[in-house]
């Protein structure tokens, strides 16, 4: 029983990561009609905001290791720790959540620059052109990150207070053996908050209402004298913020490296297609569904019956769903039907 519950938790956790990236992808596709292959790179850029912020917080005095004379071997003493003692250490400890503060404005800028500088020139071009240009952009971004930070993953620790595991079993009266890492639970809650915020924004604000109307019929909204294009630019920036902050929060789970965006991108596209192109609810539902399915397929009991199923299950489910529901789980008629 414990192992099933823990796989459900794990699936939700994985699904949350897929859903957050897929949400941004769908938002951009639904509003701008752009298939954005650079979205994974935005997720990765968010993660590197956390890396950069920690680097800034840990700017250090270098204390030379005198036993080594052949090269510069030293131990770092961060200025923050020297100047502020325990307070400085605590600030460094909270580097990941604090880096959200710099990630949000940075991702708004990235999103805005990307949309105005490149994407808008491809609105009226074929999807193949959009895919090529955004994929190319993703490669450029990741190579820039590799040149600046190297190819090795760079570990980012969660704050000490949430470094261990929570006794989830005790919370629900299921005994002590059901434990789950605190940070993964935090990530799950964070994803929930982000998804709720995006839906609320679109559902309950006038701004969101206009965006939704624009998603349905851009021309009519334009005829009403509303500059829908400007709103869509802002939606692109919002999608970048969602992906970027997801990247920041994911760093303690997966040490970031230049390729992490590409690793997630392929799966997220599967999620978008399974959920239904342009459907926000579909993207979120498919994200969680595929996360849970993947998690269960990795159980030893399942793998002993069908070896290797864990590596193909997502694609297998996608095939089955698309065969039975060609538009995906919640796909709308007319979206990418041709």
């Amino acid at each position: 029983m414990d192992s099933i519950l823990i796989q459900i938790l794990n699936g939700l956790d994985k699904g949350a990561a897929y859903a957050l990236i897929a949400l941004g992808l769908t938002l951009v596709f639904g509003t701008l009609g752009i298939v954005n292959f650079a979205h994974g790179a935005i997720f990765m850029l968010g993660a590197f905001c956390a890396v950069t912020f920690r680097k800034l917080l840990t700017l250090s005095v270098k204390v030379k290791d005198e036993s080594v004379t052949m090269f510069a071997a030293y131990k770092d003493e961060p200025y923050l720790k020297i100047w502020f003692g325990d307070t400085g250490e605590a600030i460094i400890d909270y580097a990941v959540p604090l880096s959200i503060l710099i990630a949000i404005p940075f991702m708004v800028l990235v999103g805005y620059a990307m949309e105005r500088g490149l994407i808008r020139h491809f609105y009226k071009r074929a999807h193949a052109d959009q895919i090529l240009v955004t994929f190319g952009l993703a490669i450029v971004v990741q190579e820039l990150i590799k040149a600046s930070f190297g190819a090795n993953p760079i570990p980012q620790a969660a704050p000490d207070i949430v470094a261990g595991s929570a006794n989830v079993g005790l919370w629900f009266g299921l005994g002590e053996s059901l434990v789950y890492p605190w940070w993964r639970l935090i990530y799950l809650c964070f994803s929930g908050v982000m998804i709720f915020a995006v839906f609320s924004f679109l559902q309950f604000t006038t701004y969101g209402m206009v965006v939704r109307a624009g998603m349905r019929d851009r021309e009519t909204v334009g005829l009403l004298g509303i500059n829908i294009q400007r709103r869509f630019t802002i939606v692109f920036a919002i999608a970048a913020v969602v992906a970027g902050t997801a990247g920041v929060m994911y760093t303690p789970i997966l040490p970031p490296d230049y390729h992490m965006g590409m690793d997630f991108l392929v799966l997220s596209f599967v999620v978008v297609v399974v959920g239904g192109m342009g459907s926000l609810g579909g993207a979120v539902t498919a994200g969680f569904l595929l996360g849970i399915v993947q998690s269960f397929a990795s159980m030893n009991e399942v793998k002993s019956i069908i070896p290797g199923i864990d590596q193909i299950i997502i694609y297998l489910v996608a095939v089955v769903i698309l065969l039975t529901l060609p538009r995906g789980l919640m796909g709308r008629a007319g979206v990418m039907d041709d």
Binding site: D2, S3, I6, Q7, N10, G11, D13, K14, A17, S177, V179, R184, I253, L254, M260, D263, F264, Q294, S295, S298, M299, N300, D310
Partner: peptide
């Protein structure tokens, strides 16, 4: 990338 689904069965 994420090995959590392989690590969770180790726990119990």
């Amino acid at each position: 990338g994420d090995f959590s689904q392989y690590i969770t069965p180790v726990l119990n």
